[in-house]
Design a protein around this nucleic acid. Sequence first.
DNA 1: AATGAATGAGGATTCATTCAT
DNA 2: TATGAATGAATCCTCATTCAT
Lengths: 213, 213, 213, 213
Amino acid sequence: MAGMATGRTAVGKKTRMQRSEEVRDTLFQAAAEVVGEYGYIDASITRITQRANLAQGTFYNYFASRQEIFDELLPVLGAKMLAHIRQQAGGAKTFLEKEELSFRAFFSFLKRMPYFLRILNEAEIFAPKAHRQHFRNITAGYLRFLQNARKNGEIAALTDEALEPLVYMLIASRGYLALRYTDENGVVNLPEEAVTVYLQLLGDGLTQRAPKG
Amino acid sequence: MAGMATGRTAVGKKTRMQRSEEVRDTLFQAAAEVVGEYGYIDASITRITQRANLAQGTFYNYFASRQEIFDELLPVLGAKMLAHIRQQAGGAKTFLEKEELSFRAFFSFLKRMPYFLRILNEAEIFAPKAHRQHFRNITAGYLRFLQNARKNGEIAALTDEALEPLVYMLIASRGYLALRYTDENGVVNLPEEAVTVYLQLLGDGLTQRAPKG
Amino acid sequence: MAGMATGRTAVGKKTRMQRSEEVRDTLFQAAAEVVGEYGYIDASITRITQRANLAQGTFYNYFASRQEIFDELLPVLGAKMLAHIRQQAGGAKTFLEKEELSFRAFFSFLKRMPYFLRILNEAEIFAPKAHRQHFRNITAGYLRFLQNARKNGEIAALTDEALEPLVYMLIASRGYLALRYTDENGVVNLPEEAVTVYLQLLGDGLTQRAPKG
Amino acid sequence: MAGMATGRTAVGKKTRMQRSEEVRDTLFQAAAEVVGEYGYIDASITRITQRANLAQGTFYNYFASRQEIFDELLPVLGAKMLAHIRQQAGGAKTFLEKEELSFRAFFSFLKRMPYFLRILNEAEIFAPKAHRQHFRNITAGYLRFLQNARKNGEIAALTDEALEPLVYMLIASRGYLALRYTDENGVVNLPEEAVTVYLQLLGDGLTQRAPKG
DNA sequence: AATGAATGAGGATTCATTCAT
DNA sequence: TATGAATGAATCCTCATTCAT
């Protein structure tokens, strides 16, 4: 039995379910690209299915409506983003190290998935439910991370009420920086200084004269 | 006074140009409200002119297209925002004082103009040119302000290349906090802790143990 | 003032409202014809507006939806039918006379408005609300007429509970006969014998041997 | 018995043809139910095959098109109706007796096959050929019956030209009464008065003062 | 300048039918 | 023969924009 391709029958023939999964993925990928390139508004079913090399009607064998695929875009890709960040920041020891790694990881993810940023940003308008959910995910995790750092004495003893706005500020920073340093081709190019100043803010703030000893 | 083109003629009668300006303003104000309430997508010409108590066709006597009025929304209102912030933060002496005042001023502006936030946020998608221009305005001024503070030794000696991303991070923070603390009725309600933590980031950062002496 | 065309301004110019009414009528008439020829199912907006020599979009300036105009067809034309029948049967004295005249009037109306029969029949399926209302109108009037004839001793002393099914049977007869004697071009041609036998049923029934004296 | 094409092979195994017949029947029955419940318009292939617990494609192994099964519905079920009526009215002696029995039989058939009425009525629109054929069947038989009664002197000596419209009127009466007295659940409930008045029309008509002696 | 009706391009969606497995 | 995915034609409806009055 060794070497038998999982889910395949006999020799190289795919099962119907596999084929079906593949087509669905093709549509999903096409939608992600089209939304990334043209925005949700101009991501018509025509465009999506053309990109996927399928007939318009085929779309509706896999998604109940245009909105349905829109609502699925962010959750799926957002999870990938989180996975990527976790993987990249996994080895970090200190708070600042972890911050740096996950900060950088966000941008390296955008490099790999240039269309993600637009999907993320426009989701607030075109897939608000998905967007809210995504933010809840992100912020909840981030909040726990900060609470931990606080417990360990790695950051100042801020109340939970202060931590939450802090989370929003940090996420906001990433988002706007990504926007700012993405060129017209959708390629992000973050200057190293952005990392430095982000970490400085987190570290010693702006007004200190001398580094902490 | 007779024959004077601008101003009023004799007794309370408005000149043609004044009348025209008024109608244009009415449309502009209507558009701002409608976009604020329904978003650009659902800000149809029908809705805008209805709100302005005018006929659909009248719109095109004042604006060449729907996009044109969309493109005008942010520049005009953004200027108002800047004026408000400058006026509020005018008396501040130190860097942090000025930051606090203008930070608060942003939110007090939103209280007065609840529809501004949506206009601002969605402009990125629906009036990208205006959005870019608005950001250039904002960031340029902010940058000068930070350069000044740097010259005065009020903040760390960061390079210009670091200052620019910093500007984006600070503006981003305001934007996301506004979004986060705006309720479903469009009313913003910023917790005091948000101000505190914003200023702490700017001041001493997160990781310090003891306040600077 | 004599001779002044009502609703017209000055010389031959129509007011906007008049134009509007006319266009609406044109659409209504087009819809009636198209439904009469092709049935509701194939009465697409395209067909209706083409027949009216108008653009598709114009339709929606006058009717909120396709269903809306469908729902209006029967009430309007049904009222015309009733008016025609009343006018034709007005002079009748006796019960049977009135029956004969209105029976004939139904068919003469169909001659004038060949598309009415299909509109009426298919309305049961495609405009059920309008159809129910139409039937309530028709049957209510018919019932009162029979009650009157009963009071005057012109027909047998049937209970109200018997009168109602009777009404349905009489209306049914007209409807099916119309269907039966309408050719493929939509032209109705009722044989005189149909009138005779209808009246005989009402009069003496079928099983009598000799006419009543 | 081995090798016999029709019937069953040996032990309970069905022949291919039997199996095939069964599937076809399943589809037919499913279609009848679905049309009865939702009407022809909403009797999609999806619905029909789902009701039959078969895949969509299977449908086309047994029927060339959706229209084909629609065209088959009324002939098959109409024959059942006729059989039922004949069986119920078989024992009747006189004309009026037979009329009463078959009149009642029509309604008892509807009680057993609630979906028949809708199939019958809507067939005029959605399966016009079948509908015409069905009517030819029905009316031809009815006509012979009336001609017989005429020959026997049981009814008035009407010409054939008068008999035909009469047939339509009688059938029409049943149809409309069924419609009128069917509730929203598709259950028919004919008041006894309807029978009475139907028979009175046939018997002595409406205008007689005293019953025939 | 104000009006509001006319226009028609464009897009989502449905569903009978085909077809490869 | 059964399956169910793929197809694409067809249709309703929206709305920015134009234009005659």
